[in-house]
Write a protein that binds this DNA or RNA. Structure first.
Lengths: 145, 145
DNA sequence: GCCTGGAATTAGAATTATTCTAATTCTCAC
DNA sequence: GTGAGAATTAGAATAATTCTAATTCCAGGC
């Protein structure tokens, strides 16, 4: 009961550190995302948050998620036509979308890979972010999803 | 009046070559995508196709697009929460999404880049496709969008 | 040349994800 | 404690896509 993710004060600090005004809703949303890192959708997050805060509304979940993404506390990912998914991994990483199970795995990027990939851009292009998405089959029995 | 993209027979051939059964609707949809390579959405394609085939339905446009994507004749791209966009560029390429204008530019990939990027995958991961999306500012006055 | 079956097309309804609106409540600075 | 601005809420609205059921098309066998 005392990891950095399970108490009000710590969550509040994380938000403030990123200039996201702390509110109970934002804290719970963030907590839920940190707790189960399975790239949940807004709906899934809504369901999980309702467990501890039954009065929250879906619109608020969307608002909180936008605030968290803006503050850089979580990342959002999109796969094809599916709903947006959220991810608390702040290290530079790519996503691997397992076509068989539909699950998503984080792939850590080696130092410098993003910089290197950016060098393929012609002059005049200035990328503020790069996203790499793999699609395919992943061997079973790994932790992340 | 005689590029490879403007006549029935050539389009029909392209479809057959990829095992996509040729139909008038599929041919027109493909033609439209080849003609104006601005990464249109299904709605935009629908509007353009209606010019020459007023009876086509939006559902058919979606069906045709799916068939073309399956056959590998066009690629689909998704940016954040926006609608799916379609692209006839079959060379390996990344996408650059200009945040200022909302336009999309193809970025040719140097030989071997994709293979190299795939090497960051841990053992057990087998990627059938890799997608690279840049987001940022592009210098004005370029052809593609 | 006609018939038949499977695929494609159509219009419109249905679904899903997300955003908007307007009213209420909260939070922080004073 | 108070007030101004921000956040939350419920529900309606919108946007993109998919589904459904009926119709049409077309290729191959006769």
């Amino acid at each position: 009961m005392s990891t950095t993710t399970d108490n009000h004060a710590a969550l509040s600090e994380q938000l403030k550190a990123r200039d996201v005004r702390p509110t109970p809703q934002r804290e719970v949303v963030l907590k839920v995302i940190l707790e189960k890192r399975d790239h949940p959708t807004a709906d899934e997050i809504f369901a999980r948050v309702k467990a501890s805060m039954p009065t929250i509304s879906l619109a608020t979940v969307y608002n909180c998620l936008d605030a968290l993404v803006q503050g850089g506390l979580v990342r959002s990912v999109n796969f094809e036509r599916g709903p947006t998914r959220y991810c608390p991994n702040l290290h530079p990483h790519a996503h691997f979308h397992d076509e068989a199970t539909g699950s998503t795995h984080d792939i850590d990027l080696p130092e410098g890979l993003l910089t290197q990939v950016k060098t393929i851009l012609p002059a005049g292009y200035d990328a503020s972010s790069v996203e790499i998405i793999f699609r395919g089959k992943a061997a079973p029995a790994h932790g992340t999803n």
